[in-house]
Design a protein around this nucleic acid. Structure first.
Lengths: 218, 218, 218, 218
DNA sequence: AATGAATGAGGCTTCATTCAT
DNA sequence: CATGAATGAAGCCTCATTCAT
């Protein structure tokens, strides 16, 4: 089952191209980067790229797909496990951050795809990708639903829970991404989570309880 | 003070082009839309566009500028007034939503500029725009700082407050934007605000107070 | 036979456009000047230009034609008169200079047409103009032929005489034209003429006579 | 030190494009020739031209530069050597003719640059080129100055000498250039030179000596 | 697989010309 | 005649993709 030297080399070249492309796309954006630039960064000829990827589009999709293939199972694991809802959400939150710091570059692309991508790409540019993301959102919603039922999360539409969680996460990552050389700050991460959590927790100070009456009547 | 018929027509054509361009850019993104497409959507010849705008870039910037000129003063007013911090933030939050529903299409572009723009545009594509946004963020931070000092907002870095608020807002708008034909849901808006608020409020149930100890020591 | 006010105005407008165009073309060259620029210089609308001239080409030709219509008869007069060949050539030489200083701007155009015009215009751009010029060259040649026959000019091909005369004239005018603000220098003009003349005169110092033996045996 | 077959081919293609462009520009002028036309003449696709030259401007400049790099040193050599002034000028004169017949097409371009270029090109289109030409004119003037001092050339402003020499040369070349298929005529060349020379020589027949009194009093 | 020269469709922009007022 | 907005062909240039070596 071992690969020959040739096969291993091919595999390595494939990865080198993928990485060069990822770096380029993350830095300057899909449209702005030419295949020639990717080739020169990867130290291959343009033609070679086309031996591995049928088109620029496919190259781009492969980048996303490969990373997501690493990321999604971890998330799926977390969300489909037997842990309690709160634990799941908390694990999801920090796992996303973890993943971001593992390859911040990639998140530029992903964020671009999920948040900004409405723009600059013909709809359905990366068909599978959005579906994957929506599946995660669906899972999150389920977890929240259970959490609400069990009284951990407040009785507000699970969709709203998801919106808040994802909003906080994404915007923070975008915020980091905009910085020259972002440095991880775990206190900040913790603060964000607690910010989310204190809103999400069901128990509230007496005086504001009335405000939320009837907010979740679906 | 009245315009001649001709002047009014010119003015109308200018608006028609601007709107066609806005629609196109919002739908497919700056790079993906060709001047020819804008022209055909506006039902003018390509050359005509250049009678109104010196270049594609300028056309794009004009779209952003015009809308921001309507939006920014309203925000500035809110944030620089004499109201209490909580009132200001609340007003800001709902004003943003208000503005979104006035021209949802525009927000696709703005969001793209502030969130996705890292990509696909040479830095400084629309120089003034990011600066304007950062000025608003600065103002928000000041308001939060005062709110923290006066004990309304919890003692967590005002930057974190801003991140959460903006995260919730932006992501919600992006979420709406992704929908085929978004319909306004004021309950949902209220729910989001309360989600933010219950996290942001200083008073907390006894049992979780210890969690936040030391979170804001700058 | 008098014109109405209207007719006189029309006539004036025609001239104003012609002059604005001449100035523009002389300054920046035919291709570089747009009709819009001519219009704005003439303080008319673009459409108005087309009331007077069917096309940009025609406008350009009209400028040349009008000036040549003033110039050519003077030259024809000189060359077809009853004066002696030497007097004719001399008169021609100084008349050209005179004409240059009457409208230096025009000479930029004319020189461009006759010397540089091989370039930058599809052949036959200004059909009549080159013919006119060639007719003059022909006349000059005739005069030289007679001068040679009568022993005033040296026995060298009259074509060569023409080449030298025109070369000296044209290059001098081009030289002036290249200067920021050329100032007339009659001594220089005289020097040029004498330079030409001493070469053209038949009588030569003994010692160099042998050099030219056999040079004109056609 | 040998080139691979590929390198030689590339080199050949480069030359083919350069030559096609030179021919086209010489025939129809810079502005009138489109890149598409150059491409089709060179039998390449448009895009290919841009692999060799960054822009139309650069392509044009390269044509001039390459030829001038061959031409200028030969001229410099002649004018800066130790020969006597008369010999230098004579050598210059015939060298120019020589060079013309080596690549007549090129002279159309060069003449256009030095004589007609006032028009149709933003000043400084080919920055170095005019400077080079002016340097040559300066050198010529120096040679004439010495020749005048040593009594070989008549006591007339060296600038005038240069004007005459260049006028004769340029106009002759333009004249040839205008012909369908110019054929070299060495007798004619000789006649032109002698025409110049008999004017330039200091010794003159007695009877016209008075004419030149005071002509050169700088 | 690797190369990179060649391709040519497509994008941005200019400008001569028309035409309705 | 005067206007100038509108037109669209045509020019320059880029870049994803192909193909012969």
């Amino acid at each position: 089952m071992k690969m020959s030297r040739k096969e291993r080399e091919t595999e390595r070249h494939y990865r080198e191209i993928l990485e060069a492309a990822e770096a380029a796309f993350a830095e300057k954006g899909y449209v702005t980067v030419s295949m020639e630039e990717v080739a020169s960064r990867a130290e291959f000829a343009v033609g070679t790229l086309y031996k591995f990827f049928r088109s620029k589009d496919e190259l781009f999709r492969e980048i996303l797909r490969k990373k997501l293939e690493m990321f999604i199972p971890r998330i799926d694991n977390i969300l489909s496990g037997k842990a309690k809802p709160l634990e799941k959400i908390s694990a999801y939150f920090f796992e996303c951050l973890e993943h971001f710091w593992e390859s911040p570059r990639f998140f530029r692309l992903f964020t671009h795809q999920t948040m900004g991508a409405i723009c600059d790409h013909r709809a359905g540019f990366a068909p599978g990708i959005l579906e994957l993301y929506h599946r995660i959102l669906k899972s999150l919603e389920e977890v929240f639903k259970k959490g609400i039922a069990s009284g951990v999360f407040q009785p507000v539409s699970p969709t709203v829970h998801v919106l808040i969680l994802e909003g906080i996460l994404h915007y923070y990552l975008v915020h980091l991404t905009h910085m020259e050389s972002p440095i991880r700050n775990k206190d900040e991460e913790q603060a964000l989570w607690e910010f989310f959590t204190r809103g999400a927790f069901a128990s509230l100070p007496q005086r504001s309880a009335r405000l939320y009456r009837g907010a979740y009547q679906k």
